[in-house]
Design a protein around this nucleic acid. Structure first.
Lengths: 246, 246
DNA sequence: TCAATAGTGTCTGTCAGACACTATGTT
DNA sequence: AACATAGTGTCTGACAGACACTATTGA
């Protein structure tokens, strides 16, 4: 072969000549409901793993998706109707055995959404439903999705210890108690009330928007808050709970 | 089409029928030398971006690599001769524009190795060399590798604030001053001596193995250490330096 | 008045920052 | 002795944990 310019090389390039892995994007969508952490799974209609429950996900649409985050957003929108949630890349898993069709790579994203806005929409999506994480124990998930769920769950827990991730699972406005409950559920352990309030309030992350009793609540009305602009990327220099980040 | 079993489906499956992105693995290999942080780049021999400097990386060998970490390890071994270093997945970047050949995805790994053991080996690798990170400013890197380098650099910095990552760039045994210098170079800022020593020693991460003057050193001989078993995954509950983790 | 929830006062312990100090080697 | 580097003593401030306490609502 003679020396080529890059243009000549590209003109002659035939991607299909090179064997390469399957590539997909999967999304672990979490929410809080009835006091438990839930994840959205879809029931597969096709081989492989027909009828098994799986994370929403699929292949990149080469003509429609600008990047892999767009693929993840598209999958999320299709299943939940939610458009601009917290969406974050977790990890990429690729090996020869995870998909019976051959060498396969998936990039796992995790999304957090408040429960209610999606509920009505969800009714019509017959092949999708929320599962409490505990319910998954006896459920056979497709592919290696059980491990993917665990990866996302672990990330969620870790980041809850030093960020304000849990803000994203709440409907606004919310009380500090509701926020604390969200932290506790994502963290999987209880927090001391005073410490929690001190930490959040001192960090100047919230805007008070009034006082009220959140739907169905009892007792003294609480101050209600919305996140202050830019607060979502706040990082604490000290970690919540004893220790044990990833 | 009639209803199939999964076996029939798999037998009839032709992966090449589905358009999908290119997939590669790239590795940002860091070390410390002459008091600066360096990264290993290779000069491309082929299109696209011939002669440009790039991160070591390439395609998955579907028959030889068990998973994507194996691909990363293989690339690292080929360029440095180092076998079992710290190797950690950083992030996956995929979009329509990063590779002129089309939609392309790469999973970025980062590796840390001590300088010396690789030096002799490196002499013979004519297409690879260490670059101080500052030198990269005026260098045109292939693809989006400049951004990938920045991603890896940022991860390195963040994790240095709450782990003992810098252990992996030192030859053993090392003094606390050397360890502190490693932390400072990866962190990009200076640390207070007493705080540093207290933090490291109280965490019980090191085994003292004697006293000596590290090669070429002056002044009072220092206690020398090696990492205690399992110390590598230690996590501090409080972050180093003012704040500013990712 | 009681149950239920919101919110506070305050002590303690841990640990990073600052910085002045002492210790031990070489030339 | 002068230097260079290793290593310490000790005060301070930030902040999480613990826990008892007070406040405000509805039934």
């Amino acid at each position: 072969m003679t020396i080529q310019t890059e243009q000549e090389y590209l003109a002659a390039y035939r991607p299909e000549h090179y064997p390469r892995p399957l590539f997909s994007v999967d999304v672990a969508i979490f929410t809080l409901h009835d006091g438990v952490l839930k994840i959205l799974l879809v029931q597969r209609a096709e081989h492989p793993f027909v009828n098994h429950w799986a994370l929403p996900g699929g292949y990149v649409d080469l003509s429609a998706d600008a990047d892999i985050a767009a693929t993840a957003r598209r999958k999320l929108l299709a299943k939940t109707g939610v458009n601009a949630p917290l969406l974050e890349q977790v990890e990429t898993v690729g090996n020869a055995t995870r998909d019976p069709r051959g060498w396969s790579v998936t990039t796992l994203y995790m999304a957090l959404i408040p429960y209610a806005p999606t509920t009505e929409f969800m009714e019509s999506v017959v092949d999708a439903r929320w599962w409490a994480l505990d319910e998954l124990e006896n459920l056979a998930l497709a592919f290696d999705h059980r491990e993917l769920v665990e990866l996302a769950r672990a990330r969620l827990k870790n980041k809850t210890a030093y960020t304000v991730l849990p803000l994203h699972v709440l409907q606004q406005p919310f009380s500090l108690s509701q926020l604390q409950q969200a932290f506790e559920l994502l963290l999987g352990s209880e927090l001391e009330k005073k410490s929690f309030r001190r930490r959040i309030l001192n960090a100047d992350l919230l805007q008070e928007v009034g006082i009220g009793i959140p739907a169905g609540g009892k007792g003294r009305p609480a101050a209600l808050y919305v996140p202050a602009p830019g607060s979502e990327q706040h990082l604490f220099v000290r970690v919540f709970g004893e220790s044990g980040v990833e």
